[in-house]
Simulated assay, not measured.
Amino acid sequence: MIEYLNSFQLFTDKEINEFIKLTQTRLLKKGDYYMTQNEICNSLSFVKSGIFRSFYYSNNDDEITYCFTFPDNLLMAYSSFISENKSEENIQCLTDAEIISIAKEDLQTLAKSNNNWLMFLKNIAEKEYVELEKWIFNHQKDKAQQRYLDLITKQPKYIKEIPLHYIASYLGITQRHLSRIRANINY
């Protein structure tokens, strides 16, 4: 978490220590939920270890996985976090996990007292927007095989821990189609 905060090149050691004092560490087991649909996301978390999937239910009650969150990344239902409305998504652990969380209220207090934290929140908003745009473009222009190759290239260490039906859902294809793609790729 300290390395992550230092990567923004905004904070002094004292500011980071103040932040750390406001955090809580949580251990979650495989299958646990970080949050479920209709809850309001009132904390920002950092994934120290573990893999999470974000999903929603289609009109047919099918689970649609649209995001994976890996270690050293932030975890939250961002639209719920900023709007304080109920979330449409569920966030579930795919492995045992450890997260470090700070309450939104504490983060807002930091931002009111120090512009560096306000800049941090601005950077997070920009990153979330860029990631969303990239996801939309990739799902519209790239074929499933290319999206799968991108996933295994970016996360080779963790990809084997994700059940194939979640990967297929993320790619927007059937598990059978994913099997064909995997058969055509030489690892």
Rank of each mutant, 00 (worst) to 15 (best):
C41T: 08
F8A: 01
F70E: 02
I51H: 00
S80Y: 00
N90G: 11
E131S: 11
S7F: 15
L75R: 04
T36L: 03
E105D: 09
D62F: 03
F19Y: 15
F19V: 09
K104M: 12
T174W: 08
F120R: 02
L110A: 10
H139N: 03
Y56P: 05
L118E: 07
K127V: 03
I173R: 07
K14H: 13
Y158Q: 13
A77G: 12
S7Y: 15
A125D: 11
K29L: 08
M35G: 02
Y66C: 04
S7R: 06
T36F: 13
L75V: 04
F68Q: 01
L132R: 13
E131F: 10
S80F: 01
C67R: 09
C41F: 00
I100C: 06
N85Q: 12
E39N: 15
I159V: 10
D96M: 05
W135K: 13
Y4H: 09
W135Q: 08
H177S: 14
S49A: 11
L151T: 00
I181H: 07
C41N: 05
S80W: 01
K14D: 11
P71E: 14
S79P: 14
F19P: 06
E3N: 12
Q37P: 12
D106I: 04
K154W: 03
M35D: 03
F70T: 04
L94F: 00
E161I: 11
A168Q: 02
H139I: 01
L28W: 03
Y187T: 00
T23Y: 14
K14R: 14
F70H: 07
R180Q: 10
E63V: 05
K86A: 10
I136R: 09
I162K: 02
S101K: 06
F8I: 03
I152K: 03
L27W: 08
S45A: 14
E18Q: 09
D72N: 15
R176K: 15
E18G: 06
Y148R: 00
T69A: 08
Y187E: 02
K160A: 04
E131I: 05
K112A: 09
E98Y: 11
Q37C: 08
F81A: 04
Y129P: 03
Y66G: 00
S49C: 09
L5N: 01
I2V: 11
F55L: 10
Q155G: 03
I102D: 06
K157N: 09
K86Q: 08
S169A: 11
K21T: 08
Q140L: 08
L74Q: 06
L132F: 15
F46C: 06
Q145K: 10
M1H: 13
L151H: 13
K86I: 06
F137N: 06
S169L: 12
F11S: 05
I82F: 07
L107A: 02
N184S: 07
